[in-house]
């Protein structure tokens, strides 16, 4: 996509379209790095804010998606050094983001426990596998969409997805986790 800095309403409309189109990918990238939904959201929004500022400054960004992913990756890496973290950002807590008010207390507890175990097992996987799983299961991306997002081909997506699922199943089994909480 070629995108010079547009102006006024056109710029805002294009920015909103980019946000709707890529915010999930940017969030997934940050989430796969930190395994924390709130930190990932902060990183994703900061990446988009920087894109907006770059446009404001007249910067000519030929490929906004690639630009966003690069910035988000750098932000995710820098996050450990950021003031936000130094000033008391909580360490990633398991299951803080779980929402499910419709669950009964006992079911909710079981679900949280299962999710916590899954969370721990997911942290053992590679970052790229977590990114792939996030896109697949959080946002229902198909193989072609994941392939485009990760810059690999669809066959590789199928293969890596299959391996990642197998590894997960094995580790869940070893941990005694039932998969139907």
């Amino acid at each position: 996509m070629s995108s010079g800095p547009p102006s006024g309403d056109a710029r805002r409309a294009e920015f909103d379209a980019l946000y709707r189109r890529f915010n999930r990918e940017v969030w997934a990238l940050a989430y796969s790095r930190w395994m924390d939904a709130e930190i990932a959201l902060d990183i994703a929004q900061e990446a988009f804010l920087r894109l907006w500022r770059a446009w404001e400054a007249g910067e000519d960004i030929q490929n906004p998606r690639a630009w966003l992913m690069r910035v988000a990756r750098n932000l995710a890496e820098d996050h450990v050094k950021s003031a936000f973290r130094r000033n008391g950002t909580q360490a990633p807590q398991l299951m803080n983001g779980v929402r499910g008010p419709e669950w009964l207390p006992m079911q909710s507890l079981e679900r949280e426990e299962t999710f916590a175990q899954l969370h721990a097992i997911l942290k053992e996987l590679s970052e790229s596998d977590r990114q792939l799983l996030t896109l697949r299961y959080a946002f229902d991306y198909d193989a072609a969409e994941i392939a485009e997002s990760l810059g690999i081909n669809a066959t590789a997506v199928h293969m890596r997805l299959s391996r990642a699922r197998q590894r997960l199943a094995e580790r869940l089994t070893a941990a005694g986790v039932t998969t139907n909480p």
Partner: peptide, 28 residues
Amino acid sequence: MNASPDDLDQLLRDYFRAQAPHELASGF
């Protein structure tokens, strides 16, 4: 554990959807 692929898919879907913030669905 007798995990079927469908169960694992469902578990992963439930987990990741619980993680994804609602803010992603709204505008910037």
